[in-house]
Design a protein around this nucleic acid. Structure first.
Length: 428
DNA sequence: TCTGGGGTCCTAGGACCC
DNA sequence: TCTGGGGTCCTAGGACCC
């Protein structure tokens, strides 16, 4: 039986911010979503005040002073770079690192210590201490024979103080684990959320222990293989494979944003689509991929009041040939425009690219349609942007700064302290 | 009056994740 | 007035093939 460690950063975005704002240590802090919409990360102190994920900021703002609460706009450039540092440190512990998300990773425990709970605990503690020292962030570590149990061990390490951030499943007693699993609701398991929780409850499965004890064939029949795998993993049978290393390869790519003010005109929507199409193109090129299918969509607010007109138009265009050309993507995205309805206040729009494939593999027909003017426009934009910055040149509004008045609002943004020379932290 | 069997591919929708 | 963004996997059903 092999062992897997799950490591994740506590209150990740808040912790990344605190590295450069040590004054926020020990205080209630939240990080907000784009447009300063709602909470996406919440410090332990903020959680203790009941400030959980999803709370809208406009509701909270009036109380912020009274609660001594610090709210920050999300600074994804900072988080991306801090995440890279965390993973770099973790990579020193194993040749077998699976980066699962911006703040989580799985690591395979070396064979020679996988039967020794004490050594595994020491290893987990070393990971935690090293990340604190080298990157400056607090993490928890869970170690168990399956990914699902490693996540559960990690949750345990976070919530039960005696573990002090490191929980090695086989180092705990069987009867203690059983009673823990009997106490915890099944929705605490990785892969079981509210809808499955409801359906499971209808069959009498409410605790984690219930799911672990359920007959896998029964689960397979009433749900699907995904839920069955989860149930098996809870019994210690590893059946969720490491995600295949895609090295950046994706199956789909989405660029979508809410506007800071509602959009009502075709002109504004055309601007937004042009900006998003170019961002999509940039990301495609970065992954060295091209797209065949583009879907453009827009929508009214999810929480629009009574009587507000709702509308969710979308249009899908097959591109003449697989491409990452911003000009072609922008044109294709415009197929949405005729579908917009008059008098509707659109809150968001986006572009989804699907049917992606590696760039540079061309069918015979495609050989004849290159090196024309449009390709040169894309290249030119790319060259200018590389030399002079992203904000300087683009189709439509993309090159203008300040941006149009519907563009994203981030009023409490911290400096991009690790990726931009002019935003370095100054120490005096 | 009678109307097979086996397969692939694609898409939409549902569920989950962070 | 104000409520995020970006992904993956699985399944069912339809279209189509021989």
């Amino acid at each position: 039986m092999s062992m897997i460690a799950h490591v994740d950063v506590n209150s990740a975005y808040v912790s990344f911010e605190r590295v450069f704002r040590p004054d926020l240590e020990g205080k209630p802090v939240v990080v907000l979503s784009n447009n300063d919409g709602m909470i996406v990360s919440s410090s332990r102190e903020a959680k203790a005040l009941g400030l959980d994920l999803g709370r809208p900021w406009f509701e909270l703002r009036p109380q912020a002073d009274r609660l001594n609460l610090t709210a920050l706009s999300s600074n994804y450039e900072l988080y991306g770079d801090m995440s890279r540092r965390v993973m770099e440190v973790l990579a020193r512990f194993t040749p077998d690192l699976e980066i699962y998300s911006i703040d989580e990773a799985f690591l395979r425990i070396p064979k020679r210590i996988q039967d020794d709970p004490d050594q595994m605990t020491a290893l987990g503690r070393e990971m935690k201490d090293t990340l604190r020292r080298y990157v400056g962030v607090p993490v928890c570590v869970g170690i168990a024979p399956t990914r699902t149990l490693a996540k559960l061990a990690n949750r345990t390490a976070k919530k039960i103080p005696v573990f002090d951030g490191v929980c090695v499943w086989p180092a705990t007693r069987q009867d203690w684990r059983d009673s823990l699993m009997a106490r915890l609701p099944v929705s605490e398991v990785w892969g079981i959320a509210s809808r499955l929780e409801r359906r499971l409850a209808a069959l009498g499965i409410t605790s984690i222990a219930d799911l672990a004890a359920a007959d896998p064939v029964f689960i397979r029949k009433n749900f699907n293989v995904v839920v069955m795998r989860t149930a098996l993993e809870l019994r210690g049978v590893a059946c969720i494979e490491a995600e295949e290393d895609r090295t950046g390869r994706k199956e789909q790519l989405i660029v979508s944003r809410s506007f800071s003010k509602k959009i009502t005109t075709v002109t504004e929507m055309r601007q937004a689509l042009a900006v998003y199409a170019q961002q999509a193109a940039t990301r495609l090129v970065k992954h060295n991929q091209v797209a065949k299918l583009l879907t453009a969509f827009a929508g009214t607010a999810a929480y629009a009041g009574e009587g507000a007109k709702r509308s969710f138009p979308s249009s899908t265009a097959r591109l003449p040939s697989p491409t990452a050309d911003p000009v072609e993507l922008t044109k294709a995205a415009y197929s949405l425009l005729p579908q917009l309805e008059d008098g509707v206040r659109y809150a968001r729009a986006g572009i989804m690219l699907t049917d992606l494939r590696p760039a540079g593999v061309h069918s015979p027909l495609e050989m004849f349609r290159h090196a024309h003017e449009e390709a040169n426009v894309a290249e030119l934009i790319d060259r200018v942007q590389k030399r002079a910055g992203r904000d300087l040149l683009g189709l439509g509004w993309a090159g203008l700064r300040p941006g149009p008045d519907w563009s994203m609002k981030r009023e409490m943004l911290t400096p991009r302290a690790t990726t931009h020379w002019d935003e370095l932290v100054l120490v005096s």
